[in-house]
Simulated assay, not measured.
Amino acid sequence: MAGDTPRAQPPPPDPDPGGHHPHLLFWRWRRNPLRRRTDRLHAWIALGLLLAVPAVAAAAMLAVGDTAYRHYRSAAEHEARTRDHRAAVLVHDAPRHPEPGSDEAKKARYPVEVRFPGPGGETRTGKTDVEPGLPADSTVLVWVDSAGEITDPPLTAEQIRSRTMGWAILAFLGVAVMGLAAHGITGLVLQRRNLAGWEAAWAVTAPRWCRLP
């Protein structure tokens, strides 16, 4: 209708949001009639995140890695003190591999019940993984904890390094993801603010443009 005010159109999008063209990469820093205050604010926030996130991520990686290393090293030392190797005897034959002599058979292990001496010298039973085809009464070595239960061997130096590195990488990636999320949320909030300001300005300007002669 003649008296209706047309809806405001959104402000022009970023010339190059992906930053693929070098001459448009820093457009928010240059003076131009289309640059808004929020554009400059967004640029400052992006620069701050670009400088802060790598430093914080590196610090988090070192801190978490050091904490994880201390934890796993302490756990390995405790396991080495409280676990020991003991001879165990198979109660029955271990299952045979369907392809004896193959590479797969050399790596395969089957859980078999075994007998072994407990902390007080009593006979205990449990299950451990053994090579396929071992006959009953064969002797194998098992790791036993302070409670007399079959358990895993103490952590090795390689396992400590691997787990420490895993936690350190997770810490670095976590900070990086939070930085990206902060940048995205900031851009969304500023974009909504732009749209609200554009709508308010258009409500004042549109009647003068749409007035009939």
Rank of each mutant, 00 (worst) to 15 (best):
M1C: 12
D103N: 13
V177H: 02
I150S: 00
P135D: 05
A57M: 09
A147N: 10
A157I: 00
A88F: 01
G174H: 09
P153Q: 08
A94S: 14
R208P: 02
W167E: 14
G48H: 03
R70P: 07
D145I: 03
E99Y: 14
L155A: 10
A8L: 06
A80N: 04
A75W: 07
Q9K: 10
A55W: 06
G18T: 02
T125W: 03
D84M: 02
V204I: 11
D39W: 11
G101Y: 14
W44L: 13
H97T: 04
R73G: 13
M178A: 15
A171S: 05
P213D: 09
S162D: 13
T128Y: 01
L141A: 05
A88C: 04
R73Q: 14
P22C: 08
L195M: 05
P6W: 05
P117A: 07
L51K: 10
V204E: 15
M61P: 00
P111Q: 03
L180K: 08
H20F: 11
P213T: 04
R86C: 00
G174M: 08
S74M: 09
G197T: 05
D16E: 10
P98W: 09
A43L: 03
E149F: 02
A52I: 04
T164W: 10
K106R: 15
R208A: 10
G118S: 04
L170P: 01
A176I: 07
Y72L: 05
A46S: 15
V64E: 14
T164M: 12
A76V: 07
A147P: 00
M1P: 12
A108M: 09
W44G: 11
C210L: 08
L34H: 15
A8G: 14
G184N: 12
G101R: 10
R35G: 11
L190P: 04
T156S: 14
D129G: 00
V64L: 14
S102D: 07
W27D: 05
V64Q: 15
T67L: 11
E158N: 08
R161F: 04
P15M: 10
K127S: 01
A201T: 10
A60K: 04
R192T: 08
C210Q: 12
